[in-house]
Nucleic acid binder design. Structure first.
Length: 452
DNA sequence: TTTTGAGTTGTTCGA
DNA sequence: GTCGAACAACTCAAA
């Protein structure tokens, strides 16, 4: 077997097990592991996600015996230069289906080909590659449920073992320093493949059994907490899917993974939907963007709306770089339907603070709430922040944890302190808007565009 | 080809 | 207090 030097360009696949591109590279010969600090990514990701990435790269580097090579700059320049330096004919990578990643990879591939080299893409961050689940006529699905049925029927390959790779990297191959962890006040989960697997094992043997009901409860640890690991490929969904059975809770968890795949598929077919309404008719929907809108947006960002559940969620986001899924919907509905602000404002704030921030899931989750997306929620589905609070945080445990001003408020007063006979607690604030009025205003605005 | 029923996550109102 | 209806429009799959 010929032994040709090769390179593996890591992106959102920071693991060694079940890594098709790594297996392909290992089959070629000695592998130079590369991570590129791309100024475009660095300018977009907020400090929490960069901090998580930094720890993830350190863990990956350690798992490779300190071989990781880091280069800084435009990948179209940096990757071919590294390939030439190590004499790699091929540069291996996992395919990226996001709009920017797809463009970037085309220009990197062109630059490599100009130098008689190739970018070889294997695998993807998904169980099924975006674009591969289609209707019989080849067109993409616009509704989740039929997509998910076909997606399940297509299935996924069994995970690959970690190969015996001959690394050829640092210090033999020069490298920039591994990125330092940017300062952030957020308390983040530990990163890395080993930690990710431990988190999965803990979930699988614990909260998974009650997932179907507990996943909606922000006051208990009912969710998997795996989203940051999936975001950076420290885990691959295929690894989880192969271990999941058919119990009610396991099926519900598989469905959550299917949503991740569906939204990646939608973004693949409609790249502009990352930041624009998928449903163009909704462009006519009036939203507020003036200086008072900015002020309301900042109140929402700080978690000072006066609605305890909304404020708890916004503060959890700042403190942890993460927010419970149901609360993401509650705060999103509040921004869109109580404050009448563009969903893109909220989506951008989420992307700046979420460790698991992923364009496909984030944008389409927001579009679902805003009623502008594929398979959108009916426009009249407007969350009542108090009803959601009493239903999903019945004892106020989540609110008291994240809104210290309310930590000592007794009983049900915690859900709507302004209704308390004892008055609004010191340090807290009255609701910034009247939900009943803003709900009516929202319905009025949707009425302007509906049926067109 | 046409028709029909179903579709993640809700709320309010009136009987 | 509980419960069913109403709140659109459109996509998709199955009949």
């Amino acid at each position: 077997m010929s032994r040709t030097p090769t390179a593996l360009w890591f992106r959102r696949d920071l693991r060694l097990a079940d890594h098709p591109a790594l297996s392909a590279a290992t089959a070629d010969g000695p592998v130079t592991p590369l991570f590129v600090l791309d100024p475009v990514f660095l300018s977009r990701a907020g400090a929490p996600r960069l901090a998580f990435l930094s720890s993830g790269l350190a863990a990956l580097d350690e798992a490779m015996g300190g071989a990781l090579v880091v280069r800084t700059g435009d990948p179209a320049t940096v990757v071919p230069a590294l390939a030439a330096e190590v004499g790699a004919r091929d540069v291996h990578a996992t395919a990226d289906f996001g709009p920017y990643g797809h463009r970037r990879d085309r220009s990197v591939a062109a630059a490599l080909e100009a130098d008689a080299r190739s970018l070889v893409l294997s695998g993807s961050p998904y169980a099924t590659d975006p674009g591969s689940v289609t209707k019989d006529d080849g067109s993409p699905y616009a509704v989740f449920t039929p997509f998910s049925k076909v997606w399940r029927a297509v299935g996924w390959p069994t995970p690959l073992p970690e190969p015996q790779t001959e690394w050829r990297g640092r210090p033999e191959i020069g490298s920039d320093p591994l990125p330092s962890r940017p300062a952030t006040d957020a308390e983040l989960p530990p990163a890395g493949e080993e930690t990710a697997h431990a988190a999965w094992e803990a979930f699988a043997s614990g909260a998974l059994a009650r997932y179907a009901s507990a996943r909606d409860r922000p006051d208990v640890a009912g969710t998997s907490g795996l989203s940051p690991y999936l975001r950076f490929g420290m885990l691959h969904p295929r690894q989880l899917l192969n271990e999941l059975g058919g119990s009610k809770s396991e099926r519900v968890f598989v469905t959550e993974l299917a949503w991740r795949e569906f939204y990646a598929d939608v973004l693949h077919h409609h790249p502009r939907s990352g930041w624009e309404n998928l449903n163009r008719r909704m462009d006519a929907m009036p939203v507020d963007t003036g200086s008072d809108a900015r002020r309301r947006f900042e109140v929402w960002q700080r978690g000072e709306t006066g609605y305890p559940l909304v404020d708890a969620g916004m503060r959890q986001l700042l403190a942890r770089g993460w927010m419970h899924n149901r609360i993401r919907m509650v705060v999103a509905s509040f921004l869109v339907k109580d404050l009448h602000l563009p969903w893109q404002w909220g989506a951008r704030h989420f992307m700046a603070h979420l460790v698991d921030g992923d364009l496909a899931s984030n944008s389409h989750g927001w579009q679902w709430t805003a009623g502008t997306g594929t398979d959108a929620a009916p426009y009249f589905r407007i969350f009542n922040p108090v009803t959601q609070s009493t239903r999903f945080d019945p004892d106020g445990v989540y609110i008291r944890r994240w809104v210290p001003e309310l930590a000592h408020v007794d009983g049900n007063d915690v859900h709507a302190p302004w209704e308390s006979k004892r008055g609004i607690p010191l340090g807290y604030r009255p609701p910034m808007v009247d939900h009943r009025e803003e709900r009516a205003e929202s319905l009025r605005r949707y009425g302007l565009v509906k049926g067109r």
